[in-house]
Design a protein around this nucleic acid. Structure first.
Lengths: 201, 201
DNA sequence: GCTGCTCGACCGATCGTTCGGTTGGCCGTA
DNA sequence: TACGGCCAACCGAACGATCGGTCGAGCAGC
């Protein structure tokens, strides 16, 4: 008695992770059941457990990937040399670029609330990243490279907020994607008013 | 056999809603069980159902309150008269102020994903609000009040993103809260660079 | 004695996870 | 080339736990 075994393209871990992250984003992690994931992947629930230890392992893998991309940014030479402002600008641009490249993974990272151990770990690493960025903002302020009277902590928070908010509306494959990092950086540093900016135009 | 009935301060709908919203925010809506809510309120699950029709009714009430505060902004005279830029600035400042006043409710609104009917309704109303803001940005661009070459759609998105990101870190009762709306508006319009801004300083 | 509020016990459904078992392709050996 | 064994990949069925929600009874204050 042979049930028609379709034998579609076998799923690798990467393929399954991509599918799972997509579901996590549209429904939310907690609202997504393992059956939802299996259905989306075209296999049964139990087959899913052959590839991943469990639901949280999927989340962990996704968060891992996302954070790796972010921290790789800080290792780039342009992020470690030059004036605080130029380093800051490079990181902001790069952060948007990473966000575009790894959109689903970064989106998931930004939604984590800290319910499980993996989530708390991701939260801690995010805080680490933000602290690095905040330190750079403070250095730029102290070097007189930012508007006088700017509160470094507040500025860093708004900077992160602006950059991260891109995940709320950016969708790949639309024109102008290549310019986005520069556009965001310009809005952050110059604002949107018609000022005679020192960078000129 | 009388179990010690504590009879603490009786709960009203508002008090229970406030507690529920708090739990929803820390754990996430889906991850919060009705028992979590009851425990936080100091009553049993079934008692909770005496005040609210169910879990989604709680969410609905919270989203309602949040959206009411936001839309009330658009009815203010300063939001309906004057140049597009001045109206825009008023709304941005007001949005931050609403966000400070109704922090938990707005936070919840910004996390909704669209799983239930109430969530989809809230999402639709949010889009409505954002569209009103986007129209104002476009008007400001056409009036030449914003930097030349600014994409209205992109600018509106970044504006919303910056303002909404405040919920990620703002906590009431800390000094400088009164200045926050102005600070956010200034960062949005002038940026953080030491430009010779037209508003001067 | 009525009414507002609370309670413990319980419901069916669904959750993440486990288990035993069945495939089919690949490799080493003959 | 033929064959035996192996294992990744997959499956259906079931697990205990927990979910949101219901019910009928009991209490307290007017």
């Amino acid at each position: 008695m042979s049930t028609a075994r379709v034998r579609r393209t076998p799923h690798g871990q990467d393929s399954l992770l991509e599918i799972a992250v997509g579901e996590f984003i549209t429904r939310g992690y907690d609202a997504t059941s393992m059956e939802d994931l299996s259905r989306a992947a075209g296999i049964t629930k139990s087959s899913f457990y052959h590839h991943f230890a469990g639901k949280e392992a999927l989340l962990r893998a996704a968060l891992d990937r996302s954070l790796a991309g972010l921290f790789a940014l800080l290792e780039e030479p342009e992020a470690a040399t030059g004036t605080p402002l130029s380093r800051l600008r490079h990181i902001v641009r790069g952060q948007v670029a990473v966000l575009q490249r790894d959109l689903p993974y970064v989106t998931l990272l930004l939604r984590v609330r800290g319910n499980t151990e993996s989530e708390r770990w991701a939260l801690a690493r995010r805080r680490e990243f933000d602290a690095r960025l905040a330190a750079l903002v403070r250095a730029a302020v102290e070097a007189g490279e930012l508007r006088a009277g700017v509160d470094p902590i507040l500025a860093a928070r708004m900077l992160s907020g602006l950059v991260n908010s891109v995940v709320e509306w950016y969708r790949p494959g639309r024109p102008g994607a290549a310019d986005l990092p520069d556009e965001v950086a310009r809005a952050a540093f110059d604002g949107i008013l018609p000022a005679a900016s020192p960078r000129g135009e």
